[in-house]
Amino acid sequence: MFESADLTILAGLLSRYLVVLQAQQALLNSCTHFYQLEPRLARWLLMTADRAYSADLYLPLILSVQQRTYNTADLYILRSLQVAGCSVHWQAANDKRKFF
């Protein structure tokens, strides 16, 4: 059983997490509306990397580079070719964060 103090701490943590989630949704709403694909993809990658254990992203059930691109496109509800275009552009610019 939870002690009353534990419950207060837990409820406080969950409430604050909901506030963060709301703020993230608000940002997502405006970002998808106002920004082009490239900055949106960069944001998505950064937010994913923030929540991952390392700088390398291993998207599940992906074997080939091409499939990995498709997976990201599905998550984003974007056309895969556009996503691939961004990654090629970044690699051409010698960006060290080669996610694809």
């Binding site: 406080g12 409430s15 604050r16 909901l18 506030v19 709301q22 703020a23 949704q25 608000a26 709403n29 405006s30 509306h33 106002f34």
Partner: peptide, 22 residues
């Protein structure tokens, strides 16, 4: 530039983050 993220009328309350500790 701005965009609406939600609206509140007689269904609810404005200031959710305030009582949730935000």
């Amino acid at each position: 530039a701005s965009a609406q993220i939600s609206m509140v009328g007689n269904d609810g309350v404005v200031g959710v983050s305030l009582f949730m500790g935000g």
